[in-house]
Design a protein around this nucleic acid. Sequence first.
DNA 1: ATGAAAGCGCTAACAA
DNA 2: TTGTTAGCGCTTTCAT
Lengths: 336, 336
Amino acid sequence: MGKRSISIKEISQLAGVSVATVSRVINQNGRYSKETEERVLQIIREYGYQPNLVARGLRTRRLQVVGVIVPDITNEFFARVTQELQSNLFDLGYSTIICNTNEEYETEKRYLSMLQAQKVSGVIYIAGHFADGQQPLQIPTVYIDRKPPQAGETAEFVLIESANEEGGHLATRALLEAGCRRIALVTYRPDISSHGGRLRGYRRALEEAGLPFDPALIAQVPRVSMAGGYEAAAQLIREHPDIDGFFCTSDLLAYGVLNRLLGPTPGAQRRPIGLVGFDDLSFSSSEAFSVSSVRQSVEEFGRLGAAALVAMIEGKPLERKHYRLPVELVLRHTIR
Amino acid sequence: MGKRSISIKEISQLAGVSVATVSRVINQNGRYSKETEERVLQIIREYGYQPNLVARGLRTRRLQVVGVIVPDITNEFFARVTQELQSNLFDLGYSTIICNTNEEYETEKRYLSMLQAQKVSGVIYIAGHFADGQQPLQIPTVYIDRKPPQAGETAEFVLIESANEEGGHLATRALLEAGCRRIALVTYRPDISSHGGRLRGYRRALEEAGLPFDPALIAQVPRVSMAGGYEAAAQLIREHPDIDGFFCTSDLLAYGVLNRLLGPTPGAQRRPIGLVGFDDLSFSSSEAFSVSSVRQSVEEFGRLGAAALVAMIEGKPLERKHYRLPVELVLRHTIR
DNA sequence: ATGAAAGCGCTAACAA
DNA sequence: TTGTTAGCGCTTTCAT
């Protein structure tokens, strides 16, 4: 026990060949005979040899590790994307350092610098913030969900996002078809591409229905959370009692709005109100919430993101540099 | 741009000292004059030097990286523990490779072997599975939430868990005090220490109340999820219509049970039923769910876990090897 | 098909 | 206080 694992040098001695040859068979570089290959492989199995990834990383100047920057791992949507990415990357031979920024730009910067020192091979941004003046990374990068403003200056990158505008359009149309006429929008930051896209879809649906776009009905929460949705709904209802529908650019916000709707209604009588969210989190299909929602393809985010990053790292040609994945409206208890 | 970052050697040339001196300054090893220190530091700042962690790791045989094994990052409880750990570890100078095992033992083994090859300095198990025959790790290890059966054979380890039995006791007593007499238990695997402890607390509370412990009222779900809780509740109610309370060893299960209770009740009339969960996830305080729950101290898990692991890694004395953290019952809408 | 040797960037003896 | 030097384990020319 306890003995640190065997090295390539010891294997070479055991097999009576040079370290170079051992390295070649490990990396399947050809240039060795069938017999030596078997002899070496046999010893590797016997001693349970594991290549030292750190040494390899020092030599090749890149670790088989990638960083994933995520704003809030306790948000089920991000957790699911992260999980898919990590599992796909692992299957492709890479391990993943997950960095939870808590939506704080300072933290993001610190993690980025750590990842650089760690010589990771690439990074994936899930819904990054990209504050101004950010130094574009010099390593392969995949952006998921949010488009970076400065993208284009960066060396090489891929963007994967959902058809957000279409999603916002679908959601708003569902509310309109359910009879809503004064539809509020609860969102995070419309300057962020994903939320902005959903806002555009909302606006387009209203226009197509011949309804006015009223900026007073847009609430912007400081943070994507149930509490944020709750507060936004409370204020909107107070100031605009004629509101008869809510489109939320995240299910978490929709849950908060619903909690407000389910809460006490002092004074005026409760009228039916429509509600549609985004992301189709697992609670949306629960009896307790049962909210209609626009589903994004988390599995595709993970699969494509991992594949694209590894392709860039390994210098293989990219199929595409920009993916816009279809979304799907899941109808549940829209009016409540 | 694009130029790979400067090395210790180039700094030494710029500063007119040897690489050893630069290394000493970087690692604050003393043994250098105030002037050289300033000169070196100045150049480091000027060129934005970052030490190559891979090279350092090769030399010191340990990377400043730790692995965290977690069964399901989309479970909010685990996500929160993971987040706390990662943030504390980062502040202590370590980065974190999060490994999501999906509760699969095979996956856990593959990750473990990767972490070993990666030369991580330590690992933290959040709710690990520890199948039989598992090779005890030869690096510092912290177990959180679940006690490994073979612990003790391992080199050095720390266990951090909640006062699970007390939690189960508190929860069950709350149901008893609310008037429940036929209380079912919905749990995951009682052979896992955390769930087993909660079961013991449940049993003890029943005995203290002079009520029989009926194994037929124990449902074991194959996976911690809302769906699992839903199914368990459906079956329990079908087979034991006299059940008037549920204690669930996880809030996710409690949400599932509640969804069943909120669903259609064919035939018999709905009677009031008690419900208490565990973990106090964020949805428990929502209007839609409002479930009473036993809160564990996620922040303490993160703080103590990170501190203990780093202490072991750096060879510092440990305060304790076993923490049993207090829990707190949060009363909400217990009867529904 | 195989080997010798250089070197990735850093730390830590050992010397001075 | 400072420098010289020998590796850490691996990959990769360049010979043979």
